[in-house]
């Protein structure tokens, strides 16, 4: 009796997981579709529906590799939180991709730092800026 119930619960859980995956796939498909459309319009060509479906399927599967790699990188650094260094390591295979991702990471940390500074100014009034912290954080990138 109990075993049957547990099986039923597991089945329900599997079903839920399946719907989640389907929903995520649909959303990825939509995003990939509009991104491809944009690229195609600029070049005066068009994508067939199967082509877009293939690209979104590949993207979805690539996410699995990304997620597993990131998890491993963080664990290797004895962390449980994935940070930007892990993402940079993910882009190691192509040097131009690595350059781009490094640039973006600098941009993101600069924007975040600025927002932090703004908040500080609001809360503490005329305190001195602590912009040196951002520099020490980025030293590892070179």
């Amino acid at each position: 009796m109990e075993l049957g119930q547990r099986e039923e619960e597991e089945e329900e859980e599997d079903q839920r997981q399946l719907t989640l995956i389907q929903n995520l796939k649909a959303t990825v498909h939509y995003t990939v579709g509009s991104m491809c459309q944009e690229a195609a319009d600029a070049k005066g060509v068009r994508f067939t529906k199967p082509a877009i479906a293939a690209i979104s399927e590949v993207t979805f599967r690539q996410c699995e590799h990304f997620a597993k790699d990131l998890e491993m990188f963080a664990r290797h650094a004895k962390r449980s939180t994935i940070n930007m260094e892990d993402v940079k390591l993910l882009a190691r295979r192509s040097s131009s991709l690595l350059n781009y991702i490094t640039e973006k990471s600098e941009e993101i940390s600069r924007i975040n730092q600025e927002q932090k500074d703004k908040k500080k100014k609001k809360t503490e009034g005329g305190n001195k800026k602590s912009s040196k912290q951002a520099v020490t954080e980025m030293d590892i990138d070179d």
């Binding site: 989640l20 995956i21 995520l24 990825v28 979805f60 996410c63 699995e64 990304f66 997620a67 597993k68 990131l70 998890e71 963080a74 664990r75 449980s80 939180t81 994935i82 940070n83 930007m84 892990d86 993402v87 990471s105 993101i108 940390s109 975040n112």
Partner: peptide, 18 residues
């Protein structure tokens, strides 16, 4: 959500900038 779908360890987190 896509990342969390594939994490093996549930304690794993992703920072906002990452």
């Amino acid at each position: 959500k896509l990342l969390f779908l594939h994490f093996k360890d549930d304690r794993c987190k992703v920072s906002a900038d990452a």
